[in-house]
């Protein structure tokens, strides 16, 4: 969850600048998530776990990734939900 910075709550101009920056950053980020749809994505997870899957969607709070054809060390799981907190980073080609 996010909150306003103390400075921006006191100063309306500062608040507007912060809102504008947050909007730009969030719109760009959501667009990146949408660009991942149906792409093959590599997940780098904790405990040195690396898996590949086809990206489906994520919830807007960034808690879960919904993926298909997840290649796990013990086989392919057709449909899976990956916890964002298990993930360090993910990589894909665009």
């Amino acid at each position: 969850s996010i909150s306003m910075s103390a400075a921006s709550e006191a100063d309306p101009e500062e608040q507007q600048r912060e809102q504008h920056a947050r909007t730009t950053l969030r719109e760009r980020f959501l667009h990146c998530l949408l660009a991942m749809t149906n792409k093959k994505v590599q997940f780098h997870m904790y405990e040195k776990v690396k898996v590949e899957a086809t990206f489906g969607a994520s919830d807007i709070d960034m808690l879960h990734f919904q993926v298909s054809d997840l290649h796990t060390p013990i086989g392919v799981q057709k449909e899976a939900l990956i916890r964002c907190h298990d993930v360090i980073s993910l990589t894909f080609d665009a």
Binding site: A35, C84, H85, V87, S89, L90, T91, D93, A94
Partner: peptide
């Protein structure tokens, strides 16, 4: 000519 994209989770 392609791009490689990395998303690094904020908590990590």
């Amino acid at each position: 000519g392609k791009m490689s994209v990395d998303m690094v989770m904020g908590h990590a």
